[in-house]
């Protein structure tokens, strides 16, 4: 029901906002003193509240990084949990300033939905999980013909699923829910044989099941799922701030700037490090972007660099233990690459 409420609110907001040029998102954000960040309703490693109610995960941390750049304080973020169905309307209507909610970048979303994706914070792919105890002998997705498959509605996952079974001439029975928790509960209760979503998500969800050891993630990856944050179209300044926050996170990792050493790095002799950290004389990189010149320092102080963010939330420092893989920096054979900050 909630998505309808948001839909109507969105419609009302679109109908009632004055047509005159609205203030830029940066000004609005500065005025209210915090960033409203759209996250998932709870996906371990990406955005999920911990036992104290604080949002943890790569997606949540990304919003803190932006808050670091804008306010110099990574805590000035408020989170709005959104279901897959609600997320775009919430961003379009201005309910959130950033949508950082394991959302797949597609051309349709970039062009027809009025969104701008700022980059790929996590390269993912869709996979399948089954209960190996109940289904011994199934070790490939190609053996899944006739299965009941649990999936979240309104996702690219739902579309890839249909394509995959169709192209392999297999039958399946979709069991579709609106909320992640509902899909998890249905899979755990045995309503369906197979759970499909982004592979990183499967690892996270497996931890929340009754008996995680019984479940295996099948080896097939059936799609490209580049997950990244998105902002509204038509506000280039805000788009640039969010995009370059992401690049700054990568650049910091590449230069070895960490949360622990960022202060001493400020006095480094390396001209590139000095430039990135805003220590160059008469630098205008930060102010041209619309933030302060020590914005990268603030970002790293808030969440660390991209590598730290990754390891803490989904990598070796987390229960998920996902390897960097293609999410490693380009210098280490991965796909994460930032244009130069100069």
């Amino acid at each position: 029901m909630k998505h309808i409420a948001i839909g109507i609110l969105g419609a009302a907001a679109l109908g009632l906002t004055a047509t005159a040029a609205s203030a830029g998102t940066l000004d609005t954000v500065k005025q209210k003193g915090f960033i409203q960040c759209g996250v998932s309703t709870g996906l371990a490693g990406f955005s999920a509240p911990d036992d104290k109610g604080d949002w943890q995960g790569i997606d949540a941390d990304f919003c803190r990084a932006v808050a670091g750049a804008v306010f110099g304080d990574g805590t000035k973020v408020k989170f709005t949990p959104l279901s897959a169905k609600e997320r775009f309307t919430a961003l379009q209507s201005g309910e959130v300033d950033i949508l950082s909610r394991n959302t797949t970048w597609t051309i349709n979303r970039d062009t027809a939905l009025g969104l701008n994706f700022i980059g790929v914070t996590y390269y993912d792919g869709q996979g399948f999980m089954i209960n190996a105890k109940k289904l011994p002998g199934v070790n490939s997705a190609l053996q899944l013909s006739g299965a009941a498959v649990c999936v979240q509605s309104g996702t690219t996952t739902e579309l890839n699923l249909a394509d995959y079974f169709k192209s392999n001439k297999m039958e399946y029975n979709p069991v579709v829910f609106e909320k992640l928790e509902e899909v998890n509960a249905a899979y755990d209760a045995g309503r369906c044989d197979v759970y499909t979503t982004d592979q990183s998500g499967l690892y996270g969800i497996r931890l929340t099941l009754g008996a995680p050891a019984d479940h295996v993630v099948l080896p097939e990856i059936i799609s490209k799922e580049p997950l990244g944050p998105a902002v509204r179209q038509g506000d280039d300044q805000w788009y640039h701030i969010v995009k370059w926050t992401y690049f700054a996170l990568l650049q910091a990792e590449e230069l070895g700037i960490t949360k622990a050493n960022v202060e001493e790095m400020k006095t480094s002799d390396n001209p590139e490090i000095k430039r990135v950290l805003g220590q160059e004389a008469d630098t205008k990189i930060g102010t041209d972007l619309g933030v302060s010149n020590d914005w990268v320092v603030n970002i790293v102080k808030a969440v660390g660099n991209y590598g730290e963010m990754f390891e803490r939330n989904v990598g070796s420092g987390s229960p998920l233990k996902i390897a960097r893989g293609i999410n490693a920096l380009w210098t280490k054979g991965g796909l994460q690459y930032a244009p130069p900050i100069r």
Binding site: H3, K85, F88, T89, A112, L113, S153, G154
Partner: peptide, 8 residues
Amino acid sequence: GTVLNQTG
């Protein structure tokens, strides 16, 4: 609702 989300 699904159509809403797929088409925006």
